[in-house]
Design a protein around this nucleic acid. Structure first.
Length: 422
DNA sequence: CGGCGCCCTTGAGT
DNA sequence: AACTCAAGGGCGC
């Protein structure tokens, strides 16, 4: 049972200028956080972020005020709670609070290095407290292969499906919301042999092949025992940038851009600035940007030159500067309320089993019926599943896709708590 | 080697 | 209501 806020929660004194959850978690770095808008303004907190984390499996909750980051975690019934606070070290590492204790010092440095660009870009509240997360390299890699030629809402929904389908469930007993089922990001060994087929049915498109091939390459490289792929990728943190990038680029679906994202966001390469359309536009606005690169298509050569230009400008923490500029540049993110079903009769009570085979067959035949839209919403809403005695249902054992999922599945969709990004 | 067509899907914009 | 078109690319010719 979750502790009442704020008693029973732990507190970390930190200014939103040094870490701002709302500006950091939902801006296209990580896609698996859940954001919930709190009903009442609880001690200055208007929202709560949560996700399942491992070692040991639990669900971590965070809220933020003007002075503090509050956190607590909930363990599944069969899981004994450790004596030490494992959440604080996790938070310190994930947000890189020890490694880079003062974001404001970095801002000052960037402002000095590049008053023309950064001085303009960082105005406004959306630049406040944006940090580069130190993510798990395996999760980061899968996420950014999925991200190619795709936008954030869809990346988010695909990765939630992936997690829900293959990841171990973490079922907790929440106070307000009854039983909630979160899922850990799936380990490499939890993917089966039919991966490409399954992923295609889940909507990954041509990326399905990339992901299966990448997994195959990683198994050949590191082995297939549980944990070795994750560990092998994590070891690249100690490797030289160029070497780590070469290892990544060998993987199908990983080009320069995706490799750079993984390097920056999970492998401690803080100077790397991934170049996308946003960063090209930002660089192009700069007075001293080379004229011949202005309206050129992005070739490998151009990528290198734009990257070098910005990295020279922004220095050894250039990747972090990119994160700030990117977050500011990102177009207005709707609040979770906006994601609530739009159709008139999509109340989503007592939802039937999720059958991906049925979904994909519908997708291929008829493209835009309300039925498809309805199914899809249900599917996406299942990232966090509420169990309740009235609406509990048993899953149909014939649905292959959800073998690895929870025993009981889906009841009511909870408005606004399933998805943080959109 | 550099340029260019193609790839899945869908939300957002007309 | 249909229809187009990017969306934080990458691959293969």
């Amino acid at each position: 049972m979750r502790a009442q806020f704020p008693s029973g929660w732990s507190r970390l004194r930190i200014s939103p200028n040094n870490l701002n959850l709302a500006n950091t978690l939902p801006v296209g770095q990580s896609f698996l956080w859940h954001r919930r808008i709190l009903a009442s303004d609880t001690g200055g907190c208007r929202e709560e972020f949560s996700r399942a984390v491992d070692d040991p499996p639990r669900v971590l909750f965070m809220r933020q005020t003007e002075t503090d980051l509050w956190y607590t975690s909930l363990y599944p019934a069969n899981q004994t709670r450790p004596n030490d606070d494992v959440d604080l070290p996790w938070i310190m590492d994930y947000f890189q609070l020890e490694r880079h204790p003062s974001l404001e010092d970095l801002f000052a440095d960037w402002r000095k290095r590049d008053p023309k660009l950064f001085g303009v870009a960082e105005v406004g509240s959306r630049a406040q407290g944006v940090r580069v997360l130190r993510q798990d390299p395996w999760e980061c890699l899968i996420a950014f292969i999925t991200s190619t030629n795709n936008h954030i809402p869809r990346i988010t929904s695909l990765l939630h499906r992936l997690t829900h389908t293959f990841g171990r469930p973490v079922v907790i007993d929440d106070m307000d919301d009854g039983t909630l089922s979160y899922h850990l990001f799936p380990a490499a060994h939890e993917f089966g042999s039919e991966l490409e087929h399954q992923l295609r049915n889940m909507g990954f498109g041509y990326r399905a092949r990339f992901l299966e091939s990448t997994l195959e390459t990683l198994r050949a490289r590191y082995g297939s025992q549980p944990g070795v792929i994750e560990a092998g990728l994590r070891d690249l943190r100690a490797a030289d940038v160029g070497l780590a990038r070469d290892e990544l680029i060998q993987l199908m679906g990983v080009g320069r851009k995706v490799a750079d994202c993984v390097l920056l966001m999970s492998l401690d390469k803080s100077s790397i600035i991934p170049i996308d359309t946003h960063m090209l536009a930002v660089a192009s606005r700069h007075p001293s940007f080379p004229h011949r690169l202005r309206n050129k298509a992005m070739s490998a050569q151009a990528y290198d030159e734009v990257q070098t230009f910005l990295q020279d400008k922004w220095g050894p923490m250039g990747g972090w500067c990119q994160a700030v500029v990117f977050a500011v540049d990102l177009k207005e993110r709707p609040t979770p309320e906006d994601k609530s079903p739009t159709g008139p009769e999509v109340k989503l009570e007592a939802v039937p089993e999720i059958d991906t085979a049925a979904i994909s067959s519908i997708e291929h035949k008829e493209t835009s019926t309300t039925k498809v839209q309805r199914k899809r919403r249900i599917f996406e809403g299942a990232a966090v599943v509420r169990h309740s005695t009235q609406t509990k249902r048993t899953r149909n054992s014939s649905t292959m896709m959800f073998k690895a999922s929870t025993e009981t599945l889906v009841a009511t969709k909870v408005k606004g708590e399933d998805d943080m990004t959109k």
